[in-house]
Amino acid sequence: MRIVADYDRCEGHGLCAEQAPVVFDLDDEGDLVHHFEGQELPDELEAEGQRAIDSCPVAALRKA
């Protein structure tokens, strides 16, 4: 699974980082950091990745 982040839509709520801390983080300015940008998630992180997508209140994350 690959996850695409819409950085313009992201408001920095951080719910994705709570659900998938290995995949997502927020930097010091509150901007999204996607550690697997442009890459397939490892199989063991797919469930966390899906929870992160589902938790985003502004739909800034989607499967590609």
Rank of each mutant, 00 (worst) to 15 (best):
P21H: 06
V33C: 11
E18Y: 04
H13G: 06
D25C: 06
D31H: 11
F24H: 03
V23D: 05
E29K: 05
V33R: 07
L41I: 09
G14M: 03
H35I: 02
C16W: 00
G30F: 04
G38I: 14
G30P: 05
Q39D: 15
L15E: 13
E37A: 15
C16Y: 02
H34P: 13
D25H: 01
L26P: 03
D31K: 13
P21N: 11
F36Y: 15
L26F: 04
H13R: 08
A20M: 12
H13A: 07
L15D: 10
V22Q: 13
L32G: 07
Q39N: 13
G14K: 06
F36I: 10
F24N: 02
H34Y: 11
H35C: 09
L41T: 09
G30I: 09
V22W: 09
F24S: 02
G14E: 04
E18S: 01
F24T: 05
G38N: 09
G12L: 10
L41K: 05
G12M: 03
Q39Y: 08
G30C: 09
D31S: 12
L41D: 01
A17P: 13
V23P: 02
D27H: 06
L32C: 10
E37T: 14
D28Y: 09
A20Q: 13
L41Y: 08
D28I: 07
E40F: 05
Q19P: 06
L32I: 15
C16G: 02
F36R: 10
P21D: 10
A20Y: 01
V22L: 14
A17H: 06
